[in-house]
Design a protein around this nucleic acid. Sequence first.
RNA 1: GGAGGGAUGGCCGAGAGGCUGAAGGCGGCGGUCUUGAAAACCGCUAAACCGAAUAGGUUUCGUGGGUUCGAAUCCCACUCCCUCCGCCA
Length: 421
Amino acid sequence: MLDPAYIRQHADEVRRAIRLKNEKADVDEWLRLDERWRAFTKETEDLRALRNRVSEEIAERKRRGEDAADEIARMRTTADAIKAREEDLRLVEEKLRDLAVWMPNVPHPSVPEGDESANRIVSTWGEPKVLPFPAKTHWEIGERLGILDFARASKTSGAGFAVFWGAGALLQRALIRFMIDLHVKEHGYREVYAPYLVNRASMFGTGQLPKLEEDMYGSPRDDLFLIPTAEVPITNLHRDEILAEDDLPRKYVGYTACFRREAGSAGKETRGLNRLHQFDKVELVRFERAEESYPALEALRADAEDVLRRLGLAYRVVVLAAGDLSFASALTYDLEVWAPGQERWLEVSSCSNFEDFQARRMRIRYRSAQGGNRFAHTLNGSGVALPRTTIALLENGQREDGTVEVPEVLRPYMDGMERIA
RNA sequence: GGAGGGAUGGCCGAGAGGCUGAAGGCGGCGGUCUUGAAAACCGCUAAACCGAAUAGGUUUCGUGGGUUCGAAUCCCACUCCCUCCGCCA
């Protein structure tokens, strides 16, 4: 949610953000209603002030044992007028809010304009691997090794699901533990295990609602949603809280499964583990002082990158252009790993700074040392998503004989297994 | 699912139609004392909004409605929490 004062003073910036992000939101209508809201507010408050004053007088008279019937009669009409004005106010406020919730966060000035094709590569780590033999795709490798089973996944659940067997399943557990251990022990995050089902308020808080309701799984009977990312439950942990400034930053890491409809996407790009309705992810979430959120985004990104470096996977960092930026984000870095079997880069992490956009929706504040409460800045990024990391591990680690080398750092988590055969 | 109890400021907790934005405590800030600190003592300390305002005003005691000239306080509905019973991994 944007600051109403910001919308008033920077309407052009907001219009620009809406255009760049390909959103639909009516700033002019909002501005018009905001005018009216202020007029109604004044009228309503003046009437209330009158009521408060006269009520005080009535109380005083009664205390002295005097009669106040005339004043009470006069206030009866005032009470009706107040009720009418309050109703008008309420309606305008509702409309203002309905318009405001569709306004996306404003991109950081450094964000390139344009769609996906304007995304800018800021760095690359490692050499995209070229194998000395014909590279196989991960689904070929995994099915031959008997660790990946898409046929049976579609039997139990349909297209877009995966079953991992034996060493494949162990690899998932190993990745989760490796990543969480790294972030906890070396990067200073606190581990949290949070619910997979969340309520409407939580989905609204991080900005998935109202825009993405159609993209989510849920239980309509209970008005509960399956989380599309751990960002939702973890960021909402501090909804309606006022944090102590000394307690910032708060750095959390959590593993969850994630669920996404991915409606309408099918084909080559989604084959195998590339795009699933259910997948696993280790997520990093940070709550920061306003002036520290951009340095914190760099730190968050470095923490996510560290996972890929230790796994020995070549990757690149991309700054998303405005048109590719999510609704709530001001600046996002994507981390993409190289998958030689498919000869393409795969997004395994999106590291974003939401500034105070989510915090306003959730009323997450901190008590500032100079006095006064300020909205915290929230950030998050995957550290990292499992399926595509698994793809990269299989496609990069494959040998000509069809076996797959296990990176050194994962071996302690896999009973010393050096190779999946 | 059934029966009870509850929700008040950063936190704990009192208040039961008007004098309550709200006692008291904790925490925080400032001061006295001290070489320094602690202890003790004194003072200050909710948020949001309208407004050019350091003027004035409004709102907020879980949420939404109602009664009333006036509601933290009375009534209704809902949400959440706790206790007990049932069911269950």
